[in-house]
Amino acid sequence: MGEILANWDESDGSPYNYHLERPSFQYEEPTWRIVPYDQCRASYNNHKKGIKSIFVGNLRLWTLHLIENVEISTLITHSEEHLSYIDIEDENINVPLKVYLDYPFSVCVEAEIFPLRRKELYETEYHGYFPVGYLFWQVAKVYAEIYKNHWEEVGVWGHGLSDLIVNGCEIYEDYSVMVVLSS
Rank of each mutant, 00 (worst) to 15 (best):
P96Q: 06
E81M: 07
E3F: 03
W32L: 03
F114R: 12
K48S: 03
E125Q: 14
E152F: 10
H150E: 13
A111V: 02
V132Y: 02
V70T: 05
Y172T: 08
R118S: 04
Y122F: 13
V107T: 13
V177Y: 04
P30R: 10
L75S: 12
Y16F: 12
E170S: 13
D102P: 03
L59A: 10
L61M: 11
H47N: 09
V99I: 05
E170L: 07
E153T: 14
E81Y: 05
H159D: 14
Y134W: 09
L135H: 01
H159F: 14
T74K: 07
E145I: 11
Y175F: 10
I67K: 06
Q138P: 00
W157V: 15
D38C: 05
Y143L: 08
G57D: 04
S43H: 05
A42S: 14
F105M: 10
E89M: 01
E89T: 01
N149R: 11
V180G: 01
S106A: 09
Y44H: 11
L75N: 12
S182I: 10
W32C: 02
I113K: 02
Y100T: 00
S106F: 07
D38H: 11
P23S: 13
N92F: 15
S24L: 13
K98D: 06
I146S: 11
I146C: 03
I4G: 11
V56Q: 02
G128C: 05
Q138F: 05
R60C: 05
E28M: 11
H127G: 03
N17I: 04
I88S: 04
I146A: 07
K49V: 02
V56T: 01
L116C: 01
G13W: 12
W8Y: 08
V177E: 03
T31A: 03
I34S: 07
K148T: 15
K141L: 14
T77C: 08
I171C: 12
L5R: 01
E10I: 02
R117A: 02
I76W: 06
P131S: 10
K141H: 00
Y172F: 15
D90T: 00
G2P: 15
V166R: 00
A42H: 14
F105Q: 11
G50A: 14
I93H: 09
E80N: 06
R60N: 11
D9N: 14
R117D: 00
L64I: 06
Y103C: 11
H19T: 09
S53L: 12
E29Q: 13
Y103G: 04
